[in-house]
Nucleic acid binder design. Sequence first.
DNA 1: TTCCCTGCAAAGCTTTTGCAGTGGG
DNA 2: CCCACTGCAAAAGCTTTGCAGGGAA
Lengths: 138, 138
Amino acid sequence: MSAWGRRPEVLRMTRQRSALTALLEQTPDFRSAQQLHEMLRGQGEAISLATVYRALQAMAEEGEVDVLRGSDSELRYRRCRRGEHHHHLVCRSCGHTVEVTETVVERWAARTAREHGFAAVSHAVELSGLCASCLDKT
Amino acid sequence: MSAWGRRPEVLRMTRQRSALTALLEQTPDFRSAQQLHEMLRGQGEAISLATVYRALQAMAEEGEVDVLRGSDSELRYRRCRRGEHHHHLVCRSCGHTVEVTETVVERWAARTAREHGFAAVSHAVELSGLCASCLDKT
DNA sequence: TTCCCTGCAAAGCTTTTGCAGTGGG
DNA sequence: CCCACTGCAAAAGCTTTGCAGGGAA
């Protein structure tokens, strides 16, 4: 814990950063840092993997991207579309993602926490399944 | 994907395995493989970390333990109270865990998935907060 | 000019695996 | 007697970090 190693006061918009931002802008689904790196290299961008990691980390802290942890050990990122709280419905075959906003779960989480004497409760809800087009391909 | 490297037909109850089982039996909260390993060593058991990992993996496949992936990169395990589908309410300070069974979320997940054309949907729901006793300690 | 950002390479972490020897059934 | 299990150490992934040079503002 601890170690919020000091954060810069401003984020500089460098060539690498804007390339990554642009890529995220046109990428609808969650991608891992390594995938994003490959995509950038693939389109001729000169950028190192470390930079991608650092940029994504910074953007996540700014709330500019959503971070998701799948069943494997890698984090996946996607540009955040909405300010408010939401969850994701992810296709486990192609990665296609739908953002879902719902109050049912929110209320259930709050009630459950209260019943058990917990406070400051946050909840993580992720749905995964097979999307319509992946079902067709079968 | 793939590689369901062949599984043994029977699980042998070795000294290491029963020590781990016993430990899990008396451990109410989720613990990482490394924590469990240390606890075993601490009580004088001779067992390697690799064995702990392999045993937990096997037990997870058998459905004997629940696996949870926290915000960090490590998996945490706990003996599964055999039975129906459930979720967890975990204290982010002490790790104390409460099992929660609820149908509200289940129904919401199913409905949401259907609305978006998804099938074979599974859901992961984890609540984390501060439990009553950790709140008191403050 | 300042000091944030970048690349590279090395290091860190958790988890997995190859191998040869051991022991449960 | 098999062959699953174990320990050890090396390897595998993903991610982070130290350092020195570069480039936004």
